[in-house]
């Protein structure tokens, strides 16, 4: 995990207007939103922004774009709440409020020289995408690269075209499972943890990055450790209610951590015990 220097913005609470450069459908309930980032903006894989729809409200959205091109600021958003549904109506040329980036990041530097295992559940693939793009941009720095992705149904698979490209590469492995599917699906059916045993990596030299629903991360973390990865080498990105993103509002507390500023990325070593306790 990298420590992000404190923001130099005068007021970390005030959103900055950003022009929308593209909006597109990803799945039935998920869409992409690309913004022209403010001058000088950069981010680390795993960080998030607060997106503000004027007068409607604000939501925390992970950045899913390529960190090598921070000026093209991509978000992948499930339109399930009042604000996210409203964001879906944005079109190129519209303006949206943005503040960020906030939070810490995936350990892409620490993972150099190691096998990289990415495990995503559902929309959890979105915050992992910048980490994967960074690894592929610097492919020679890493050992084996594995992406394990579980989602509800074949129709919910994100980044379909990109997944096919990644599957076609000889320098990475992609395994996908869905919870439920019709007869036209010939892939794996089941939870993503079932893929871990089949994934080709050296557990004694691997770094895992996991993002998905909390229960999925709980079992994935456990399974990865059972497979032999050090608990300190298993990184999980937590989701909590975030209002301020800078540790003022208290909503995102998880044990001693403010997920917004101490996270969202934690090691299984740090939070594995808490994940086993109900309603933390």
């Amino acid at each position: 995990m990298q420590t992000i220097p404190e923001s130099t913005q005068i007021d970390p609470m005030a959103p900055v207007p950003c022009k929308v450069t593209a909006q597109w459908d990803v799945t039935e309930d998920t869409f992409g939103l690309r913004l022209a980032a403010p001058a000088g903006y950069s981010f680390q894989p795993g960080q998030f922004n607060m997106l503000y729809q004027f007068g409607v409200g604000e939501v925390a959205i992970s950045i899913s774009g390529d960190p090598a091109y921070p000026e093209s600021l991509v978000h992948t958003i499930r339109g399930v709440g009042a604000v996210t549904k409203s964001l879906r109506n944005l079109r190129a040329g519209d303006v949206v409020g943005m503040r960020g980036p906030f939070g810490n990041s995936w350990p892409v530097e620490q993972a150099v020289g190691h096998d990289v295992v990415l495990v995503a559940g559902g929309i959890g693939l979105a915050p992992l995408r910048p980490a994967l793009l960074h690894v592929l941009n610097n492919r020679n720095d890493y050992g084996r690269v594995v992406l394990l992705y579980g989602t509800r149904t074949p129709r919910d698979i994100l980044f379909q075209q990109e997944l096919q490209e990644w599957r076609g590469r000889f320098d990475m492995d992609v395994l996908v499972a869905v919870d439920a599917a019709g007869r036209d699906w010939h892939g794996s059916v089941g939870v993503v943890t079932k893929l871990i045993g089949r994934a080709p990596f050296d557990p004694h030299n691997a770094v895992a990055m996991v993002c998905g629903p909390e229960i999925m991360m709980r079992f994935t973390g456990r399974e990865l450790v059972t497979r032999g990865i050090q608990p300190s080498m298993v990184y999980l990105s937590m989701e909590r209610n975030m209002k301020c993103a800078v540790g003022f509002c208290g909503h995102c507390q998880f044990g001693s951590a403010f997920v917004c500023k101490n996270g969202p990325v934690f090691t299984y070593d740090d939070i594995g015990d808490l994940l086993d306790i109900r309603e933390v």
Binding site: F54, G55, V56, G57, K243, C244, F248, C249, G250, H251
Partner: peptide, 14 residues
């Protein structure tokens, strides 16, 4: 105790 929430408001004209 410092926990707080925020509410985004507009006038009728937006």
């Amino acid at each position: 105790c410092f926990c707080a929430t925020v509410e985004d408001e507009t006038d009728l004209a937006g």
